[in-house]
Design a protein around this nucleic acid. Sequence first.
DNA 1: GTTCATGCAAATCGTTTGCACAATG
DNA 2: CATTGTGCAAACGATTTGCATGAAC
Lengths: 138, 138
Amino acid sequence: MIAKQRIAYKRSQQRERILEILRNTTEHPTANWLYDHLKQEFPNLSLGTIYRNLRILHEQGKISILDFGSTFDRFDARLDTHYQFICESCGKVCDVDLPVMETLEKKASENLGATIHRHRIEFYGTCAECSYKKEDGK
Amino acid sequence: MIAKQRIAYKRSQQRERILEILRNTTEHPTANWLYDHLKQEFPNLSLGTIYRNLRILHEQGKISILDFGSTFDRFDARLDTHYQFICESCGKVCDVDLPVMETLEKKASENLGATIHRHRIEFYGTCAECSYKKEDGK
DNA sequence: GTTCATGCAAATCGTTTGCACAATG
DNA sequence: CATTGTGCAAACGATTTGCATGAAC
């Protein structure tokens, strides 16, 4: 478990673009989406680079990693605690505008005798568009 | 998306034991844990069988699948909504005894115009034992 | 020039699947 | 005996990693 000694981060075009895109998207892209998207700018781009940079951005505390049941992670430049909704029909992930309940952590903490650093809430269901599609015709 | 036509489920020793174990464990075993555990009873057991049966038990509504950020899923014979705590130090998963907040789904639903079927809450932190270990010595 | 980042391909790891054979009903 | 389940090994898909080359400082 000897962590590879890293002295400093150097800048890289790719990393800066990844962060920029994440900051300008309300969607929560997957690694693969980022790859497809940036492939145009960097024709030789590789998926390894995407993943390495996502990990680095996460280490730097600049992005967060949202891991749901789905096989792939979603990445987000929003760092504050916020809740998510996942559409089980189309897979879309979006933020839910509900006040964050700090008290929950306290209660759970007392309950378990554990130290709690953070919590997540995920809502699962069918989004407005998908409900609409299902209603008419097929 | 042609679902393989299944007429009926037949019983199988392996499946019954898997369910039995899940019902008698408060831990939330991984597929691999179940495999190791049952390998003694069924020396030729294969992981494929574990996964197939877990999926079938889930289809039958007898177990639930808990998927966290960790690479592997956890399985649970408790079916009612309940919240989880995940120790970031030892990876243990346990249930949190807090009242289920039905109203949350309603609020989120109004917020998004979506239909919400269920929600999950996960707390992340350090469990009592791990906190204790860290305190003294190393 | 030393260190970090890239691209590429191979490796990893949890999970799924195709197939021939065994168990169930 | 028709159908489902098993074991095995190969396949899968998201992510990671080793290595030689290229960019940053």
